[in-house]
C-alpha cells in the first residue's frame, strides 16, 4: 500500500498546471482531493510519475447560484452540504452529497474529482446527468464545454482529453421535486444502486422528469425513456412500473461483492420507484 515514487507539483495557476501537463503528457495527472487517486496509486493501479496538486490554483472553488448554478471543480462535497443558498436552489445536491462516503472523505473529495474520475461508483456523474449539467474544461486550446450526458464513454474513459483540466460544472436551476435514493452496504460504500430524480408537476400530471442511475453500468445511466414514461401521467403505480421497466432496459449491472445481477436489477427498480415517489411528493 505504498505508491511508486512520484514528483509532486503544486502550481499557483492554471497556466502552470497546463504547462506541466504539456511537458509530461501521460506521465502527469492532476489531483484534487486525492481521495480516489491516492488509493489507486497506493494499490499501484495508477502510475503517476508527476502529480499536480490543484489546491493552490485559484478560481476553482466558487459556488454561484442564480438561474444558472455554477460549481467550481475544487468545491468539496462538504462545501456543497454547508451552502444554504445552493441547498435552497438545488436541494438534490445536498441530499446526494450527504450519501457520499463519510464526513472525513467529504471534506476532501471535490466535485471536479468526482465527475472527472469516471468511476461508475461515483455518485455525482449520475446526479449531473439528471440535472443536465455541462462540464467546463480548459486545455492548451482554451475552454470547452461538454454535456454531462455525453461525457462518459466507459469506466475511467471520459470526453475529457488527458491535457485538459475540469474547471466547473454548471446547470440550470432545477425545478420541481427531487430525490436522491441510494442503497449501500455501509457508510463509506459506493452504491449497490442509486437513483437521481427531478420531476416537474403541472396540476396533477408530470410535466417533465429526469432520471439517472449510478453504479449499474460501466458509466452512469441517464434513462431518457424512464423519464418519458412518467411524463403526462399522474405518476401512479402503473407509470412508476413503466418508468422502472424502461430504466431496466438501460442499465447493465455486473456481479460483485454487493451481489449478483438479478439482485442489483431488483434493487435498482425498488430504489428508483422510491425515488420517484419521494420526488413526486415534493414536486
Amino acid at each position: 500500500m505504498i505508491p511508486a515514487s512520484f514528483e509532486y507539483h503544486r502550481p499557483k495557476d492554471m497556466a502552470g498546471v497546463l504547462s506541466i501537463l504539456e511537458e509530461h503528457g501521460d506521465d502527469a495527472r492532476v489531483m484534487a482531493g486525492g481521495h480516489s487517486l491516492i488509493p489507486m496509486m497506493k494499490l499501484r493501479m495508477a502510475d503517476v510519475p508527476h502529480l499536480i496538486d490543484l489546491q493552490d490554483v485559484g478560481g476553482l472553488a466558487g459556488i454561484t447560484v442564480g438561474d444558472t448554478i455554477t460549481i467550481g471543480a475544487m468545491v468539496t462535497q462538504s462545501d456543497i452540504i454547508l451552502h444554504d443558498a445552493l441547498a435552497d436552489a438545488a436541494p438534490i445536491l445536498r441530499e446526494a452529497s450527504l450519501q457520499i462516503a463519510d464526513p472525513q472523505v467529504r471534506y476532501m473529495g471535490t466535485v471536479g474529482g468526482n465527475v472527472a474520475n469516471g468511476d461508475p461508483g461515483n455518485d455525482m456523474p449520475g446526479l449531473m446527468q439528471c440535472l443536465d449539467a455541462t462540464f467546463t474544461v480548459v486545455g492548451p486550446n482554451g475552454e470547452r464545454k461538454i454535456p454531462a450526458r455525453e461525457f462518459y464513454e466507459a469506466a475511467y474513459m471520459t470526453g475529457r482529453e488527458d491535457d485538459e483540466v475540469m474547471t466547473a460544472v454548471s446547470f440550470a436551476k432545477p425545478a420541481g421535486g427531487h430525490a436522491y435514493e441510494k442503497q449501500k452496504r455501509k457508510i463509506g460504500d459506493y452504491a449497490t444502486a442509486a437513483a437521481a430524480v427531478q420531476i416537474v408537476k403541472d396540476g396533477g400530471t408530470c410535466a417533465s422528469a429526469s432520471i439517472a442511475m449510478t453504479n449499474l453500468s460501466d458509466t452512469p445511466v441517464y434513462s431518457a425513456a424512464a423519464g418519458d414514461a412518467l411524463v403526462g401521467t399522474s405518476v401512479d403505480g402503473d407509470a412508476i412500473k413503466a418508468a422502472v421497466s424502461a430504466m431496466l432496459n438501460d442499465i447493465d449491472p455486473v456481479e460483485d461483492n454487493r451481489g449478483p445481477v438479478a439482485f442489483k436489477r431488483h434493487v435498482a427498480g425498488v430504489i428508483l420507484a422510491r425515488a420517484i415517489e419521494r420526488a413526486w411528493a415534493r414536486a
Binding site: 442503497q183 452496504r185 449497490t192 454487493r258 451481489g259 449478483p260 438479478a262 439482485f263 431488483h266 434493487v267
Partner: peptide, 16 residues
C-alpha cells in the same frame, strides 16, 4: 446476512 443474501432468501421463499 448481507443485503443480497437476505434478498435471495426472500426471493426463494416467493416473497417477490
Amino acid at each position: 446476512h448481507d443485503h443480497w443474501r437476505i434478498w435471495r432468501t426472500a426471493n426463494e421463499l416467493g416473497l417477490h
